[in-house]
Each structure stands twice: as C-alpha cells, then as structure tokens.
Design a protein around this nucleic acid. Sequence first.
DNA 1: CCACAAAATGAACTTCGTGTCATTTTGAGT
DNA 2: ACTCAAAATGACACGAAGTTCATTTTGTGG
Lengths: 217, 217
Amino acid sequence: MSPKLSDERKERRRQQILEAAKRVFAEKGFGAATLKDIIEEAGMSRGWIYLYYPTKEEIFEALLDHQDADHERYLAGLEASSTSVWELISASYSMRLNEWASSSDRGLMPAFYEYFLVGWRDEARRELLRRRYEKGIVQFAELLQTGIDRGEFNPVLGVLDISRLAASFQEGIVTHTYAVGAAKANSPMQIEALLDYLKSLLRPATDSRRPSREETL
Amino acid sequence: MSPKLSDERKERRRQQILEAAKRVFAEKGFGAATLKDIIEEAGMSRGWIYLYYPTKEEIFEALLDHQDADHERYLAGLEASSTSVWELISASYSMRLNEWASSSDRGLMPAFYEYFLVGWRDEARRELLRRRYEKGIVQFAELLQTGIDRGEFNPVLGVLDISRLAASFQEGIVTHTYAVGAAKANSPMQIEALLDYLKSLLRPATDSRRPSREETL
DNA sequence: CCACAAAATGAACTTCGTGTCATTTTGAGT
DNA sequence: ACTCAAAATGACACGAAGTTCATTTTGTGG
C-alpha cells in the first residue's frame, strides 16, 4: 500500500515552518522577510515549502490563527474566574501586552501591524482584517458598558460615548505597542502605567492616585 | 563657460519627482513602491533618478519634510488667531485629518505608518522617528495642561495623567486614521465624532451631549 | 528486505528591481 | 551658429527572490 505519511507528522512539519517563520518575521518584519529566509531558518530545502505554504501571506495568517486561538482560550478561562469587570479588563490587557513584550515575540508585533497596513490595500483581504480590527473594540466596549451598568465604574462616564472610548483606548494601545515594542529592549512596555491611566479614567472617584510626569514618559 | 543649470530648474525637477512619488506611494504603499514606478510615473528615464534621490527612503524623507513644514506654518498662523485652547486643538486636528482624508492623499497615510513601522527596526533611523513620534504627544500634552490651568477644561482631569491622556489620544488617532483611512473612500473619516468624543472627555461639565452609538461606529 | 509511492531535494530557470556607464542631447556662453 | 560641459538617456550587468521539476531519499505495506 502507499505509505501515506501520518497526519501528525504533517502537522509537525507545519509547526516547524510556523516556528521558523515566527522567528524570521520577528526579526525582519513582514515585508522584508522572504520565503527563502523562512525555509533556511527551518533548515529545509528551497522548493520544499511550496508543498505546505505557497505564500508568505498564508504562513502569516496561520500564525495569526494560532495567536487568536491561544488568546480566546485564555479569555474564556479568565471570564470564568474573574470577580470584577476591572479585574477582567486589566488581566486581559496585561496578559496580551506581557506576551508581546517578551523578548522573543517583541519584533512580532510590528510585523503584525505592518501586515495589516499592507493588507488593507488589498480588496480581497480587507474584510478579514476589518473584522479582526473591530472585534477587539466591540468586546472592550461591552466590558465597559457592563462595568458602568454594575456601578463598578464612575457614573460620570455616562456622558462619554462608550464605543468611542473603547475604540480610542484600543487604537491607542495598538500604536503604543508597536511604537514602544519596536523601539528596542531598553524601552519597557509600561504596562502598569497604561493600566493606571485607564483605571484613573474609569474610576476617578475611587482611585485618585496621580502618577508623576516623569513616571509616564 | 559651463552652462550650469539654474537652481530653480533643479528644484523643479525635484518637485516633479516628489509629486510622482507621492502618487505612487499613495497607490502602492511604501514597501511595494519601487524607484522604477516613481521614475516611470514622473516620465523619466531609468538611471536618471540616481542623480537626485538615490533611495526610496530619501524621497520619502523629503516628502515628510514638506508635509511637516506645511503643518508648522499652518499651526503658527492658527496659534496667533485662536481665542481658546479648545479652538486651537480642534482646528489643528480638523486640518490634519481633513488633509489626510482628501481622496488624493488617502493612501498616503498608511504608507507613512508603514514607513515608520519598518524604519523602527533600523538602528540608524530610529532616533529620527522617535523624535517625530514624541513631538506630537508633547505638543498636545502642553495644550491640555494650558487648557486645564486656564480653567477651560474640567478640573476633574487633574486626577488623570495628562501626558498619558495626550499620548493615548494621539496614538489612538494614528491607528484610527490609518485603519479607516486605508479602508476605502466609502468609510468617512468621522472627524466630527472623534472631536466630539475628545470634547466630551475634556469638558464633561459644560458639554454633556452624548452621541448615540449608531452615530459613532 | 523488497517495492513503490509519497516526501524531500536542490539545480536551474524566470522574473524583477537596482545600479552603472558609455553615449546622446541640451543649452548657456562666446 | 558653434562649442563643450552638464544633463539626460536607456541598454546592460548584476543580484536576489520566486517557482518549477527531474531526481533522490524515505518509510510503510507486502
């Protein structure tokens, strides 16, 4: 009979490629990385990769899917165990930002945003990207609204447009993380400061600690 | 005597290149654009451009410088004629965002961010980019502080970290503009909504209009 | 341990952008 | 109108990445 390779072996191969790709993308960014780089990083031969991933884009999408799945799993667990909305928000951001901040993944974030930026020009990919983009905003807005409804956050927030507050913070995080994240290992990600700021915005009545300027730039 | 070309003619040539480059970058983005594209768009010959701009990066920097100079001029005029801090802030953002939103420049913005994103990896260019990045934040933070000191904004803002508020909004604008800006002509830039949100954040006591959710997403 | 099909290889080909340079064109000064 | 150096041209060489494919290797069923 034909000695069909076991699926698990195929899976191992794909995994091998993805791990190599992750390193390459983190180091060079999306545009500058080439299939050649990835193949060599994985220690494989030139034409080989076409049997699995024919384009850079497909490899990247696969990476994104992995990342998303991990994060979903984490969030689900978190939601079950959290006692307050703020705890959920802060743990979620901490987790994601710490993940990005880890030295091995540091360069990956700019690569992600680069990919989004270029992809937006491509009619075919735009919808996919838009969905991913808005999902985070909507989720966050819902959390904020829940917090307000429960009386956990300052009722003054009622005058604000919650969707836009969510969008603004989420969008701010994006720029902040890629800018600081790409800036080098010697620029800390300032996760605490970011969360402090958000907390002071949401709960000014109960938490009035004001960070000094030096502490935050 | 040697027929030295007049400086103004040289200047016209440079201008010609920059205009062609602007169109090409807007259409293709930074990474995908090639010197070849730019030369052809400008209607010139292959080896020609190296006499003026040897690399894509230099052309792009020149474009940035033009843009900056224009904006500085505008701001200076504005500062002289504005009667309140809020007026200054809102006019400044409106101007810049409207400029970006104009159809001819629409694609330029993603190209700018793409350039930044890639440039950040390059040790040599990082300092330049970082300066440009922080400049806007610092300027905005100063405006906010002035507004608070003058009693123009809600004193409740005192509990917030102003530097971070400025950074957060400025950083949010970046992501918002590239995301929406790149998303297509049919997605309006929502400048009014953004400014409304900022206004409600700064002046909740005096302006309590709350935009509906439909209006803002 | 043999056969054989799938998996893997890497040389070779194609394509494309960059950069060079010998040659032609242009235009200010005489 | 003529001269000559600067400006402009575009054919060409080069390198790097993508892609193909004939050949070799691998490993399971018989």
